[in-house]
Amino acid sequence: MAPVHHFLYLGAFLFSTGLIVIITKRNTIMVLLGLELMLNASNLNLVAFNSLHPGSLQGQMFALFVIVVAVCEAAVGLAIVLRVYRQYRTSVPDHVNELNQ
């Protein structure tokens, strides 16, 4: 069995990657993907920590609920992206700046 550290390193790496994706990609769907990546990174941590406590299920449960919430977030986020796209003909987040005008 691999040491827990390695799970955590991968989690940190995926989290940072998701952060970079969110900051740098000029496309709302890509930003959503980055968000999913970050959620998964945290999930990985939860599952890894749970493996240290075999009797309890709290980490796994948390991970499950995170997945469910991520589903909701993805569905609603995508719907918003589609609507924004229809409205403004753009999927670049910075172009939707009507309130800034």
């Binding site: 999930n43 599952v47 493996s51 075999p54 796994q60 991970a63 997945i67 991520a70 589903v71």
Partner: peptide, 22 residues
Amino acid sequence: LYVLAFAEFVAVTQILVYAGGI
């Protein structure tokens, strides 16, 4: 990785919900 961390159910959910759904 989830399977390797003894979280089979989470792994299956991951595949079903994430890979298959989202």
